[in-house]
Computed example of a mutant assay.
Amino acid sequence: MSDRFLYTLPTDPVAVPLVEQLTDEYHTRYGDYFEKGGASQEMNRYPPERFSAPDGAFVLLLRGERPIAGGAFMRYDEHTAELKRMWTDRDHRRQGLARRVLAELEAQALRQNYRKVYLTTGFRQPEARELYLRAGYSPLFDLDAEPETVQILAFEKRLLPVGALFANENGDAPRSAAAGK
């Protein structure tokens, strides 16, 4: 069975099981940490339309017709997308799915003319912290500090069009990988 990406909204019936599982995970990890209303209020802080074009995106990774991972972004500022709601189904972890969703969201952000990605994750999500560090995100907090003292772990990453990776030291125009052979 092959996997495929589906762009939709968090309110789409196919997304509901994954969104509910993420809400439950927030509740389990953070309890009453979030302001009045708990994890449900946090999950509903933004209207679903914030995660739709032209300013945002909400993507699911489907295996068959079942969502196994997903994530979203919304406009942070004119040049920056803010990642939100990255999640992998609890029965499908440790397969690199979050990294696939992250790469898809970065590519979509580029397609929507963003040049940078910003995100925050919570101090009780060490696997998310490590994912973003391994994916080249710069921490906007002291990595040596205890995460609970920082609480909101912010990251950013400049997005480069694929060809930009092959620009020479003089800053000449990007060239394709084939041209460098």
Rank of each mutant, 00 (worst) to 15 (best):
S2G: 09
R4D: 10
P10D: 09
P17A: 09
L18G: 08
R29A: 12
R29Y: 08
G31I: 02
Y33A: 13
K36D: 10
K36P: 01
A39T: 06
Q41V: 07
Y46M: 12
P47Q: 12
P48Q: 08
R50W: 10
F51Y: 15
A53G: 03
P54G: 04
P54W: 02
G56V: 00
G56S: 00
G56R: 01
F58L: 09
F58Q: 06
R66C: 00
P67G: 14
M74T: 14
R75G: 10
R75V: 07
A81E: 13
K84E: 15
K84V: 14
M86P: 13
M86N: 15
Q95H: 12
R100M: 15
V101Q: 12
V101Y: 12
E106C: 01
R111D: 06
N113Q: 13
N113H: 14
V117M: 15
V117P: 07
L119D: 07
G122Y: 14
F123M: 13
Q125W: 11
A128I: 02
R129I: 02
L131T: 05
L131P: 00
A135R: 02
Y137E: 00
Y137I: 00
F141S: 07
D142M: 05
L143S: 07
L143R: 05
D144N: 04
A145K: 12
A145D: 11
V150M: 03
V150A: 01
Q151A: 13
L153Y: 05
A154R: 10
F155W: 04
R158E: 09
L160W: 03
V162F: 08
V162K: 06
G163P: 00
G163V: 01
A164K: 03
L165P: 00
A167W: 05
A167K: 07
N168T: 08
N170H: 07
G171H: 06
D172E: 09
S176R: 04
S176K: 04
S176T: 04
A178F: 06
K181N: 13
